[in-house]
Amino acid sequence: MEVRTIKVFTTVDNINLHTQVVDMSMTYGQQFGPTYLDGADVTKIKPHNSHEGKTFYVLPNDDTLRVEAFEYYHTTDPSFLGRYMSALNHTKKWKYPQVNGLTSIKWADNNCYLATALLTLQQIELKFNPPALQDAYYRARAGEAANFCALILAYCNKTVGELGDVRETMSYLFQHANLDSCKRVLNVVCKTCGQQQTTLKGVEAVMYMGTLSYEQFKKGVQIPCTCGKQATKYLVQQESPFVMMSAPPAQYELKHGTFTCASEYTGNYQCGHYKHITSKETLYCIDGALLTKSSEYKGPITDVFYKENSYTTTIK
């Protein structure tokens, strides 16, 4: 009895394709271990004539594949690729409408935090270190965002349907971005203890939790000093293409032309909904596939993004 075979390709990165001759009487799992086709788990399936010449994702289970996976995804987590594939199996079914010149995501599976993050990423200057993220990001900007969303979920250790947080998501993504040249110098002034300067680099240099107003941050924000008295913390120097200011959701007025974009969060910790506000020729609110415009805006804002380049204080 002759062994019926077909020729397929296996890959971990969709760049390096490895030619395989597979036995049609055995499952993919018996031949390769966990195997995925377009995100779908085909591990328990036997090869079919229609699979001839198709590319299958496999887990990096030998040295060659491990090197290829690390170079593309910059992670050695053995569960990463499987999590990416199972997320992709959902995100490829989502709709990605162009809204006001940006790629958004039609609401499904509690994905409003991903839509808000995706919209924000198209408006701030950011370059990702893992080629996987950078490639998928370019495709997302062009309207094909399924891979990018699935990668975000995998890097953030999230599953489809789980509630997510924009600030946490951005923080994970910033860790995989090139923020080497970003720098922030802060000064804390206390009447009792004097003053202390701190220099922050990388992710810490672009994120701040405690106030939404970048102007206020430049002037000074009140913080408790270690001595128990009130101290003032203010920005001395900022070198970065953008800054992200966050605070627990509270009524906040966004003035046209003073910011790049913002995240609105309605609801409580267990259950809520994100919308995205962007400042173009007027203010726009993007909620999944829905767009509304207004000249002014007041609502429960939790993150505001500002364009920056270089700032030095005039406070002496």
Score class of each variant (00 low, 15 high):
H256Y: 08
K316I: 15
H48A: 14
R83D: 01
Y137P: 03
G299M: 02
D63E: 11
L163M: 09
T226E: 11
W94K: 05
G164E: 03
G161H: 03
F242A: 08
Y138N: 13
C285K: 09
Q197R: 09
L163S: 06
E264T: 03
N89P: 09
L153Y: 13
S50D: 14
V189Y: 09
P249W: 05
I45L: 12
K316P: 15
G194A: 07
P241L: 02
F305P: 01
Y265D: 06
A40C: 14
N147F: 02
E239G: 01
L235Y: 03
K298H: 11
A154E: 05
L114P: 03
V304I: 12
D135T: 07
Y28C: 00
G161R: 00
V236P: 02
I45N: 15
D23K: 12
S246H: 03
A69Y: 06
P60C: 00
F259Y: 00
M244V: 11
S50Y: 12
P97A: 08
Y234T: 11
G288K: 02
P130A: 11
F56T: 09
Q196L: 07
R141H: 07
N157E: 08
G272V: 00
V206T: 04
D23F: 10
F9I: 11
P248K: 03
P97T: 10
L173S: 08
S79N: 14
R139C: 10
L114N: 00
Q30F: 06
P47I: 05
R4W: 11
K95V: 14
V12Y: 05
C190R: 03
G272S: 02
K183Y: 11
L88T: 06
N14W: 10
I124W: 11
H176I: 02
T91Q: 11
W94D: 08
I315F: 15
F9W: 10
M244D: 01
L102E: 02
Q237D: 05
G53A: 11
G33N: 08
K95P: 03
A289S: 11
C156M: 07
G220Y: 03
E168W: 15
Q216F: 04
A87D: 09
H256S: 04
I15T: 13
I301S: 00
C190H: 02
G39A: 14
A142E: 14
P97M: 00
R167L: 04
T55M: 07
D287S: 02
K54I: 13
R4S: 13
F9A: 15
T169V: 15
L254P: 04
N309Y: 13
Y57S: 05
G228Y: 03
P78S: 11
L290H: 15
K201D: 01
P78R: 11
V243D: 04
L186N: 02
N14M: 05
L81A: 12
C225D: 00
G202N: 07
G220P: 08
Y297P: 01
L37R: 12
K46F: 09
E2P: 08
W94T: 07
L114R: 04
N187E: 07
D287W: 00
F259A: 03
P249V: 15
F9D: 09
N16C: 09
C112K: 04
T43K: 10
S246R: 03
M207F: 04
T76H: 06
T11K: 05
H74G: 11
L200W: 00
T198E: 13
T266I: 10
A150V: 02
I152A: 05
Y36K: 03
F148D: 00
D303I: 00
G53L: 11
N187Y: 03
A154K: 03
V189E: 12
H256M: 14
E296S: 14
S279H: 06
L114A: 07
Q31G: 11
C156F: 02
K127A: 06
Q251D: 13
C225G: 03
I152V: 06
Y172G: 13
A289Q: 06
A145W: 08
K127C: 10
K93D: 07
K316C: 15
G210I: 00
N147M: 08
A205G: 04
L59C: 00
Y234W: 06
Y96W: 01
S263Q: 07
I6F: 11
F217N: 02
S104K: 02
T282Y: 13
F56L: 12
G33C: 06
T55K: 09
L235K: 00
E52P: 06
C149A: 08
L17A: 13
D135K: 06
K183S: 09
E281Q: 04
P300T: 14
G257E: 08
E144V: 07
N187F: 04
H90M: 12
T313V: 10
N157G: 07
E253Y: 00
F9Y: 14
D135G: 03
V160N: 00
V188H: 10
T11D: 03
G257L: 05
I223Y: 11
K280Y: 10
S50L: 13
N111L: 03
L59I: 14
R83W: 06
Y252H: 11
Y306N: 00
Q20M: 10
K298G: 04
F174T: 06
L119R: 02
D135L: 08
W107Q: 03
S310T: 11
E264M: 07
G194M: 03
C227W: 01
P47M: 03
S246C: 06
T169C: 11
K293M: 13
E125T: 06
T159V: 09
S294V: 14
I286R: 05
N147W: 08
H74F: 01
G267M: 15
V160E: 03
G202I: 02
R167S: 05
A136K: 04
K127F: 10
L65W: 05
L153F: 02
I6A: 14
T226K: 14
E2L: 10
A87C: 12
V42F: 14
G202F: 00
P97S: 09
G288W: 01
G220T: 05
G101F: 00
A289N: 12
C193T: 05
G101S: 04
S213Q: 04
T10V: 14
N61K: 11
T278F: 11
A250F: 06
A150S: 01
T266C: 05
T27F: 15
P130G: 09
A205P: 02
A87N: 09
A142K: 14
F305K: 04
N147K: 11
E281A: 02
S294P: 12
L102A: 01
I152H: 03
G143F: 04
Y208V: 12
F148K: 02
Q216T: 07
A136L: 04
Q20E: 08
L81F: 13
P47L: 05
K54G: 12
D180I: 05
P78T: 07
T55F: 04
A108C: 14
N100I: 06
L151R: 03
S263F: 07
N61T: 11
L163H: 03
M207V: 08
K219C: 07
T35W: 13
D303E: 03
L118K: 08
V221L: 12
A289G: 09
N16W: 08
Y84D: 05
C193Y: 00
L200G: 01
F174H: 03
G33S: 05
T27I: 09
G194P: 06
C149T: 06
I301F: 05
S279M: 05
Y214D: 00
T43L: 04
H90Y: 11
N157V: 06
M209F: 15
L59G: 07
G161A: 09
Q30M: 15
K255M: 06
E204S: 11
P60E: 01
A142Q: 14
A140W: 14
G29C: 14
T76C: 14
Y208R: 07
D135I: 07
E162H: 06
D63G: 06
K127Q: 15
